[in-house]
């Protein structure tokens, strides 16, 4: 399943034969992938193919029915989700999940709080946490002008950027993005794609779950196709998109409508 490619960088995060069943429903059933250091991997798959559930399993938000999860070659399927975040795995969610009563700045600070050091009563009450990480995240996502706005006042695309900024503020080693550009216009999508590529060049390992195939082809170094919770094929983006199984499973009748 995971055929090692030539001169591939070491896998930072690896999932093997992951299955998540809810009662009789097999949301994910034997899917796996490798996130290689400093590369962007993309998961391609129609709605309901289990991409988000897989991401939830990888980030330990739902329990595994079966499978192996490894971070730096070390199994972590008993690590609590919060600890995983402390070990440098950050994620965004498919739907916008910002705290409505906090400002954009505070929502992003929530991410940076992670790096503000461990327990201790003094730490609880610290006002600002790692201001550099917050500022950097705001700058990268272009949110400077709305930093004191509340989520309810933002456009959808902007709210999505805050999500990305919050994840970045945790200073992750691995970033998992669940449809980060859903609801964004073309220009905004391009910006996210460029940001991802820049982050990759700085060495950040990323996983992208998206619908926008052209964007994925542009952005990702590798694509993994998923259908009904199972792996269809994987490889270089251009090849995966051309794969007949993918064409049939995913692009299907609407395959010609976009370019």
């Amino acid at each position: 399943m995971n055929t090692p490619e030539d001169a591939a960088p070491p896998a930072v995060l690896e999932a093997q034969d992951v299955a998540v069943h809810y009662g009789g429903v097999k949301a994910v059933d034997g899917f796996g992938l490798k996130l290689e250091a400093g590369r962007i991997c993309g998961i391609l798959g129609p709605n309901g193919s289990g991409k988000s559930t897989f991401l939830a399993a990888v980030t330990r938000l739902v329990p595994l029915t079966r499978g192996r999860l490894m971070l730096d070659g070390e199994e972590y399927h008993n690590t609590p989700a919060a600890s995983l975040a402390h070990r440098g795995v950050a994620r965004t969610f498919q739907t916008v999940r910002l705290l409505p009563d906090l400002t954009v700045l505070e929502n992003i600070q929530l991410g940076a709080d992670l790096r503000a050091g461990g327990g201790g009563v003094k730490q609880w009450f610290r006002r600002t946490a790692v201001p550099e990480a917050v500022e950097e995240a705001i700058e990268r996502t272009g949110l400077g002008a709305v930093r004191s706005a509340r989520p309810g006042e933002l456009s959808y695309g902007m709210a999505r950027r805050v999500e990305i900024a919050r994840a970045l503020a945790t200073r992750p080693r691995v970033l998992l993005l669940d449809e980060p550009t859903a609801g964004m216009n073309q220009a905004e999508r391009r910006e996210v794609s460029q940001l991802m590529q820049k982050l990759r060049d700085e060495g950040l390992t990323q996983l992208l779950v998206e619908h926008d195939v052209p964007m994925m082809v542009d952005t990702c170094d590798r694509l993994v196709a998923m259908k009904s919770g199972e792996l269809v094929t994987e490889g270089a983006p251009a090849e995966v998109v051309r794969d007949p199984a993918v064409q049939e499973a995913y692009l299907g009748k609407r395959g010609r409508n976009h370019a």
């Binding site: 129609p46 705290l99 709210a159 926008d212 976009h258």
Partner: peptide
């Protein structure tokens, strides 16, 4: 941007 499918689950509402 022509995403491949209508984004049924996440209708943009502007908030959370």
């Amino acid at each position: 941007s022509a995403p491949l499918e209508p984004l049924s689950e996440d209708v943009p509402t502007g908030g959370t």
